[in-house]
């Protein structure tokens, strides 16, 4: 069995978000890049499945759409334990564009993991689009994957409970948090070996983008917090009624 994990290159979650002057692009100056947290958990689960006793998984590939500066993120995935990486050499313009680029490198895999969303633009669209473009089944909001004697068992959180599905391969699993406990820390040898693992760069296809960004708006700054002493309940109610207007 061959697994592909889609890897998003996203700003570190503690990044201070700034935009360019006309507010049409994110200012990437000084930004540290990481593996999209959902993708990192997906990779962790893929590695656990590969290492499990009796596993028939031969290899785990990782793939992203991005320029050469995103290779650090792919190499981190290799350091953690992925076997090979593929990078489609273009900017990830929108979800359809990214899904289309990935479709050319995602053929022939038995199981594909996509994070449910990316922590930068939170589009939550690439996984489903890619499955459609590949013509394979997909299941969303996956919070657990087990392989028991070659059979795939998928669990999902649904409104008011959970659901367990038996699925056939090939499959694209759109995973959410809970798929793995926490991301792995790469071992030192893994880091040192990452550069010697294969990273294939693929030229992009001609694909039209379907969306363009008109403008970004930062949220209004949070109002200052007002502290009310514990014996001033009447004052608290007055503030909630007259100032916050929530009562």
């Amino acid at each position: 069995m061959k697994i592909l994990v889609l890897i998003g290159n996203v700003p570190d979650t503690t990044t201070k978000v700034k935009f360019n002057a006309d507010k049409t692009a994110f200012d990437t100056n000084g930004v540290q890049w990481i593996i999209n947290p959902w993708d990192e958990l997906a990779l962790t689960r893929a590695l656990e499945l590969k290492e499990a006793a009796g596993s028939t998984i031969e290899s785990i590939f990782v793939a992203n759409v991005g320029r050469s500066e995103t290779e650090g993120t792919l190499r981190k995935a290799l350091a953690v334990g992925a076997d090979e990486a593929i990078r489609v050499d273009t900017d990830p313009k929108d979800a359809f564009y990214v899904a289309s680029q990935l479709a050319q490198v995602a053929k022939g895999f038995d199981l594909i993991f996509a994070g449910i969303e990316a922590s930068d633009y939170n589009g939550a669209a690439v996984g489903g689009m890619l499955a459609e473009l590949l013509g394979i089944q997909s299941v969303s909001a996956v919070s657990g994957i087990q392989i028991e004697s070659g059979n795939l068992k998928i669990s999902r959180e649904i409104d008011g409970g959970s659901q367990t599905l038996a699925m056939n391969l090939p499959l694209l699993a759109i995973v959410q948090k809970g798929i793995a406990k926490e991301p792995r820390i790469p071992a030192m040898r893994g880091i040192m070996m990452a550069r010697s693992k294969k990273l294939t760069v693929v030229a992009p296809m001609e694909v039209e983008t379907l969306t363009s960004i008109v403008t970004f708006e930062s949220p209004a700054p949070k109002a200052a917090c007002k502290m009310v002493a514990e014996d001033q309940a009447r004052e608290l109610i007055r503030l909630l009624h007259e100032e916050a207007k929530v009562l």
Binding site: G72, R75, K76, A79, I185, P186, A187, M188, I191, M192, A194, R195
Partner: peptide, 8 residues
């Protein structure tokens, strides 16, 4: 690699 080791 050095940055990855520092991060690890």
């Amino acid at each position: 690699e050095q940055l990855m080791i520092q991060q690890a």
